[in-house]
Design a protein around this nucleic acid. Sequence first.
RNA 1: GCCCGAGUGGCGGAAUUGGUAGACGCAGCGGACUUAAAAUCCGUUGACCGCAAGGUCGUGGGGGUUCAAGUCCCCCCUCGGGCACCA
Length: 857
Amino acid sequence: MAEDEQEYDFSSIERRWQEFWEREKTFRAEDGSDKTKYYALDMFPYPSGAGLHIGHPEGYVASDILARYRKACGFNVLHPMGWDAFGLPAEQYAIKTGTHPSETTQANVDNFRRQIKSIGFAIDWDREINTTDPGYYKWTQWIFLKLFQRGLAYVDEKPVWWCPELKAVLANEEVVNGKSEVGSHPVERRNLRQVVLRITAYAEKLLAGLDDLDWPDSTKRQQKAWIGRSEGAEVQFGIEGSDEKLEVYTTRPDTLFGATYMVVAPEHPLLDKLVIDEKKEEAKAYVEAAAKKSDLDRTDLAKDKSGVFTGSYCINPANGDKTPIWVADYVLISYGTGAIMAVPAHDERDFEFAEKFDIPINRVISRADGDEEKSKLPYSGPGVMVNSGEYDGMDADACKAKIISDLEAKNAGKGAVNYKLRDWIFSRQRYWGEPIPLVWVSLEDFEKATHTDGIIKDLLPERAVTTQKDGKTLYALPLPASELPLKLPEVENYQPSGTGESPLATIPEWLEVWFDLSTGKTVSRAEDRPDGGNWVSATRETNTMPQWAGSCWYHLRYLDPSNPDHLVAPEKEAYWGGPDFYIGGAEHAVLHLLYARFWHRFLHDEGVLAHPEPYGKLFHQGLILGEDGNKMSKSVGNVVSPDIVIEAYGADSLRLFEMFLGPLEAVKPWSEKGIEGVHRFLRKVNRECLRKDKHLSGEETDKETLRLLHETILKVTEAIEDLRFNVAISQMMILANHMQKVENYSVESAKALLQLLAPFAPHLAEELWEKLGGSPSIANHPWPKAREELLVADEITIVFQVNGKLRGQAQFPKDVDKETVITAAKGDEKVQSFLEGKEIVKEIYVPGKLVNLAVKG
RNA sequence: GCCCGAGUGGCGGAAUUGGUAGACGCAGCGGACUUAAAAUCCGUUGACCGCAAGGUCGUGGGGGUUCAAGUCCCCCCUCGGGCACCA
C-alpha cells in the first residue's frame, strides 16, 4: 500500500465534508415530516469581538452528537444556531470609535459563524436567527405588547445602579464589588423611571411548573429559592392613639405572644405618622442614611443592626400588649408588608436587635422534651406553646392555623403567601437593544384614545400605565402589531444622554411624533401634523429592552425563522414543540431560564403556544479550565482558541477531546497532551480503515471481534443516551485497539465502528465510510443495532473470595450450578490455604459472578 | 451562616441495582523498527514488604451496617457552586 494513502490529512478531509454537507443540505430539518422530531438546542452565543474560545463548543459538540445520533436513529432532527447579538460591548465600542453597533455585530457574527462552521456541526443553517434583525425583534416587541395589553407591564421608579463617571445605568452584572466593571468607577443607587414586567403574577405557575421538568436538581432548587414562596399570615396591629393599623407579615403566627417590638422599613409609608415629635430629627437622619446605603452596604453591614425608636406603640391583637415600634433597615420595604412583628426569642435577627437595644425577649415556644441545651434562645425549632394564654401546651406548628383562623374571626389578620421574587426591570437606558414600542400622551389624548374606534382601543390594559415627566402625568399607548418592527433610528453618536436616559432621548425627530389614535401610525413631528382628527402629539418611549428579551423566545423562532405573519406558525409549533434537549451554562440557572419560562407560559396562556413550558430537558455543561487549572481569561493568558487547535489537530480531534476530557457536567482542565491522545486514536482508525490487506469481505467471522464489536455498539449507544460521551469514546478506543491487534477483520466491522464514531468525529467518519464503499452521507445510514445474544460468552469467569478478599478464580460453563462452583472454590489450592484450620460459617454465591466464603477461627 | 455538589494512581478519569477498584487516555520507564529521528508497535507502571512465589495496605479522615462498602448510615475535614437580614 502506498505511504501517502495512510496519511490523516484532516484539513482537506474536513473542508471537503463541510462543503458536502452544506451543498447537499444534509442536516436540513423538515417541517411537517412523518418522522418523529428531535430538537437539540444550544444556548445561543453572544457574538463577542474576541471570538469563540474553547469552552463555547463543549455544549455544541454534545448537542451535535445527540443530533447526529438521533438522525441515524431515524428522527427528523432540528439542530439550529443563532446570535444573541444585542448587548453592551458593541455599544461601548460604538461610543469609542463611532462604528455603528450593527457593523460591529455583523463582523462578530461572521467570525462566530466561520468558527462554528469550522467545527462541522449538523446545523440547519437555513434557520439561522439574529436577535438584532428587525424581522426578529418585531416579534420580541409583539410579545411585549401582549404583556402590556394584559396589564403585565408597568412603569415605575426603581433603584438602579448609576455610574456618574460613565454617565450610564449599569446592570447588576456590570457592577463588581461596588464599582463599575468597566473602568472600576464608583456607582450609586438612583431612582430612575423603568419599564417593569409583572413576573410576580406568574410566581405560582413558575414554581409549580418546575415539578414536571427534567432539569438538574440544583437548577430547580435555585429557581425555587429565587421564587422563594413562604406561607404565613398578615396580622394587623392597632396603633395606639390612631385609627390606622400596622400590617405585618409573619411565617410564625404561633409566636404572636412573643412579639416584644415592631419594626417598619425606613421607606414605610406610615413612618412619618408614627414618629413622635421628639424623635423626628433622629428618625429623619436615620432614614436618610439608610437611603444612601446601597443594597450591598445594607447586606455587608448586616451583622451590625441599627434602628431608631419611633416613640409610637402598637397593640398586640393577641394579648393587648403595648409594643414599641422601631424603624430599622434590616426590614425591607420590598418584601411582605414592609413591616414585621419582632419575636426576639425565636428569630435570630430580632434576637440580635433586641440584645443591642435592650428590648425584652420573651420565650413562647419550648421544646417538648425540655432539652435546655438544644432550646437556647433564639430557638426556631419545633415545640409547644408557652406564655401564650389559651394556647399554652399546644404544638406550636399545629397552632399556626388555629391562630390564623382566630385572627380572621377577630378581623385582625388572615393567612397569606409571599414570594421573594420581584418584578422584572425590563428597560435599559441604552441604544443597542429592542426599542420598546410605546408612546406617551397626555391624559386628555389618552381619554380620547379610549373612545376612538380602531385597533388601539382594544390593545389598552385594564389599568392605564402612567409615568411622571416634568411634573405632568403621561399615559402609555401601544403601537399596534401592524406598526412593528419599531426600528432603531440612526444616531450621530452613541454617547449616553447624561441624564440616565437612553441615547434615543437625544433624537428629537424620532422621539417626538404625531400618533394616530385610531390606526397607531406615527409620523415625526418634524413634519406637519397629518390631516384627520385622530392625530395627537406623542413622545416615544426611549428605553430599550434588556438582552434577556431576545433569548426569552428564540427557541420558538427556529421553528419558523422567517415567518412575517406569525411568531411561529401554530402547526409548526405543534409539530416541533420545545427542545428535546437544551444545553448551556449553569450561570443561566435562574435569570434566562426563568424569564424564558415566564414568556413561554404567558404565550401559552394567551393561546399562542400549545405547550406551557419551553425546555423540558435541560443540561448544564461544565466549565473547561485553562491548562493551569484556572478559569480561562485573557488577563491570565491561558485562553485556548479553537482556531489554533483545529489547525494543529483538526475539528474531529477537537470535538472528540472536548468530550473525552471527563463527564460533560464536570469542571475540567484543558490539556494539550490530552488532545494528542485522541488525535492518535483518530489516526489509528484512519490507518486501520485503509489497511486493505487486513480487510475481509462478508460478515465478521472472528468470534472475539464480533463480540467486542457488539459490546461496543451496546455501550456506545447507552453512553450516548446517558450523555456519558467520555465512556463512549473509551469503548471505541478499546475496539480500535483490538482491530489493530488482530490479523484480519471484516470491512463491515470497520464500517460499524465508523457509524459509532460519526456523531463524534463526523468528517473522518464520512471520509473513511466512502473509502470503504459506503454511500455518503454516513449520517443517513441507520444506527447499528447491538446483537445482545453475542454478548453472552459460553464460559464465564467466577471469582473466589474468602472473607471478601480475592483468592482465586476459574472458568465455568455459563449455566453452571451453585454446588459445582462452591465445590470448585473450596477445592481451589489457594482458597484452601486460607481455609486451613478455620470454620466456614457462610457460603455466598452470586450467580455468574463470585463465591464468597466467610470463615472464622 | 444556610442549602447543594464533589474528593479514586504522577495527571484527566472508569467502576450508575453493594459483588474482581484503577477501564480508556496522558505522563513515566524498558524494548522493537531506523544510520538517526519522526511516526508506529510491544511490554511495564497504586503504595509498601519480598530474590521470587506471594503477602499486606489502599477510593479525603474517623466510626458503623454487611459474607462483601468507592458505592449504604453517622460524625468530621477540604474544595467547588448557589443563597445570604425575604420576617
